[in-house]
Design a protein around this nucleic acid. Sequence first.
RNA 1: AGGGCGGUGGCCAAGCGGUAAGGCACAGGUCUUUGGAACCUGCAUGCGUAGGUUCGAAUCCUACCCGCCCUGCCA
Length: 580
Amino acid sequence: MNHPKSDSKNTKSKTNTRENDNNTSDTNFIRQAIEEDIASNRFDGRVHTRFPPEPSGYLHIGHAKAICISFGIAEDYDGLYNLRFDDSNPITEESEYVEAIKRDVHWLGFDWGEREFYASDFFETLYEYAVKLIEKEKAYVCDLTPDEMRTYRGTLVTPGKDSPYRNRSVEENLTLFGGMRNGEFPDGSRTLRAKIDMSSPNLNMRDPVMYRILRAHHYRHGDNWCIYPTYDFTHGQSDSIEGVTHSLCDVQFEDHRPLYDWFLESLEIYQPRQIEFARLNLTYTVLGKRKLKVLVEEGHVDGWDDPRLPTLAGMRRRGYTPESIRNFCNRIGVSKADNLIEIAQLEYSIRDDLNRNAPRVMAVLNPVKVIIDNYPEGQVEMLDADNNPEDENAGTREIPFSREIYIEREDFMEDPPRKFYRLAPGREVRLKHAYYITCDNIVKDENTGEIVEIHCTYDPETRGGWSDDGRRVQGTLHWVSAEHAVNAEVRLYDSLFTEREPENAAEGADWMQFLNPNSLEVQNNCKVEPSLLDTPPESLYQFLRMGYFCVDSDTTPEKLVFNRTVPLRDSWAKIQKGQK
RNA sequence: AGGGCGGUGGCCAAGCGGUAAGGCACAGGUCUUUGGAACCUGCAUGCGUAGGUUCGAAUCCUACCCGCCCUGCCA
């Protein structure tokens, strides 16, 4: 066996706090297999993995799992990892996707250094490999049409039968294959096939196609080729050429493994080991490039980076951090069993991260005005507010307080139910960082009956939100000074689908019908504290009591736009539910 | 129906013949200037089912049941 010399070591990313990633299970069947290979010196003790996306779409959380497994293992065993674009189908692939994929993998926190490969760059070598198999009488040119080939292949329970072209001479095959490459035959008229076993119970072994004739522009190689190798004839050989030791992939490729091995053994070249694991499934969404593509192309969402999408670009825009995604991947583990991870697991990961790291800020999403009648008109006080109670190094900032403020409309009830600890007639509550206020009366719109003003009095002795007399208030509200408030748009998201398993919701049902019509709710009249002015896109905050929010790229100097990443856990909502 | 792979609590997942880790979720409680966070407690006499081997079985054996994947010149 021979394999290429390993090149330079992976440069591990320094900027990310990778050492904080928590691994709940530090062992799994893949790591065990690798440890056995190291112990037996199977690959001279090397560990070298790869992540091989086809540039035909954007990466999603399922890819993140695969990346964390392959690259994470390589890092942990002091090995190498490659990023390889599996671009052997010119029809579906585009440069836009390779750029997006590179951006997302980097963002996730992995640096493949110089080890960026393209399967299409191996086309010449692959061609030589194919010639070699023809010479060894292990491949032949077949003239069967697609329909005929399907018929000859047999079925799951019946064997196939040999192609009438199966026994062409080496010379004829060589000539014909050369002719295929030279463009002498029309698209689809012939294929190069591996000569294996038409009666194999594994359909992948029934003389699989290695090359097809296809006149299509390749995003990377233009019109240099009119024949393209199939996945099966590309993947293993690419792994081999790159010196990969462990080729980790989806369980769907399990019954391709015999073929993977067959090509490498027949070619007598270095043979990596393929190991399969279960792909990720998430509740209330769909993963899988074709489906995501449909959602994007049919306009059900607003591009690949729509914050409702499970794409890495969408999650980034939504406010997910790379750390939270890596932690999520480590927490869910690796096995071969089918799985369906609850979205709550993902939400936990981002809350866990943002709770520790996101600055606190006050923002009123659905404002109602509160007038503090005994507060001097025109007076403004600057009050100290801590930026993050979970982080003593986060410091404080000053926020303006004045006679008229906004509070959340939901924080007032004229006739409050039991356990409602917020503002109500005659009730005293604390304004976070400010004063205790008591509600005296309310003003309603004569026509609609809607509350337009809440009149309160404040207790000057409670500045900062403390009182010396041991008095305790039940509720603490967030607020924004009306005079100083900055207007903002806030986008609230709900799950993209109404069904836990949109793809398996009902017999024969189309997953598309379970799209949630209310997955996006826009609040246009939000009031945020002035410190939020001029914060750049992707800045993350906790809006006190409301959840975690992220500055959206649609933000302009005139209009702030925020995405709600995820709400805070809300025990009041639970109580309310129980009371009904 | 042929082949491959799976089946441990609501969702994941350790376990590798010595008497069921952990996380999420959920339920109680403590604390609290976020009904957040944190902290404490509870949560599988049971490991798809039925037999068998063994002093002892989720782990070994046998049979059966259920689920997923495979009939592209996609990856």
